[in-house]
Design a protein around this nucleic acid. Sequence first.
DNA 1: TTTGTATACATTGCATGCAATGGACGTTTA
DNA 2: TAAACGTCCATTGCATGCAATGTATACAAA
Lengths: 211, 211
Amino acid sequence: MDVYDEVRGLIVLGTYPAGQPITELELCERLGVSRTPVREALRRLEGDGLVRAARRGVTVVELDAKALRDAYLVRACLEALTAESAARRQRDGELSPANLARLVEHADLADQATRQGDLVAGVRHNRVFHGYVATLADNPAASEVLVRIWDQITVSTRASLTAPARPVLVDDEHRQLIDAIAAGDPQRAAAHAREHVLSTMSVLTERGGET
Amino acid sequence: MDVYDEVRGLIVLGTYPAGQPITELELCERLGVSRTPVREALRRLEGDGLVRAARRGVTVVELDAKALRDAYLVRACLEALTAESAARRQRDGELSPANLARLVEHADLADQATRQGDLVAGVRHNRVFHGYVATLADNPAASEVLVRIWDQITVSTRASLTAPARPVLVDDEHRQLIDAIAAGDPQRAAAHAREHVLSTMSVLTERGGET
DNA sequence: TTTGTATACATTGCATGCAATGGACGTTTA
DNA sequence: TAAACGTCCATTGCATGCAATGTATACAAA
């Protein structure tokens, strides 16, 4: 569905921020289609967890401090799983050197963008990196859920998007994760992935979670 | 949305089995509404991961052996998380004795139904039990994802639904999980939950997963 | 008998119209 | 001036119509 992708993009890319009410007619004239496809796109996004039914129409999902912590806990579990599976596949010889090279490449891009102060690009490459780990895990069920969680977190943390205090730490964690996967060590990969996600979370909660 | 709940029920309760193509008009006359609300319900179910877009219309999601294993891995992670969180809340005094009593009650009902050979009731109570653990964890993000996974697994394993070879083992695992939560031991609760889910999975894969 | 093609039909995607509902705003009264 | 009430309008939920698309079937030809 084309309208679905467009509306999803409007939300994930920030045109409609978290908590924003969305009226059907507004989307209609913006996209140049009638209400029917717009409504169907909104229903599907509702299933995706990106918008919620409000008293009138829908609003973009908005996670408060606790809901954000909850989402990060889910994310940490699942990223531990995907990292573990990716490492296991590496151990079993199911990954190619090109796979690992690309993983390093994504980590490089994320690090470069962050160091250069391009936060938006940094976040984007970061997500591609984590997404590629999930791809290497070859677990579509996990990937689908992670996409859900990533989107929800992205939308709800955009307002408080700032540069990491010590970008080198983020990059170090990426490298450790890569090392564990490359070494075919599932336990270590899972641990690094979990810790990395949780440390990302604690940065957020330290800044805005005292409410 | 009322139509959404009805269609969802038709799928989860087995009227429309896994892999079944669903045409809009069929649902229209069955539910006595026009195509518009039916279409919106299907789009939302698509977002829920319960139906997939086919070349023509939608079909009920059907997980093959590998997809089923993937889903069980995700489920194991998340149930470990909810069990761990529930145990932590117990340790921190956030759960009431009534909470634990109800947990035991659900386990009792599940065990009784299973021993009496009522598979459908057994599965239902089983799910209520696991759902209540997630409730005690107080993590709506995890609960939402688990509902998704449970529904998908329920739909795709209905055809091969048989009595557990040794129902006493299932019940023992439930009791161990309850004990760990009641003791406020997050580590042990997580381990028991994970092992319980994985042992459930292995029963399935041993029977039908050799393909 | 098999294969290719054309036609008809089933089904979907989208637009529009109408009724219902809920909220906003203005008016009135204490 | 503040609060309560009523009216109006924005917005949504549902039904229906029409065009497009893909599939199945029947028929013809090799």
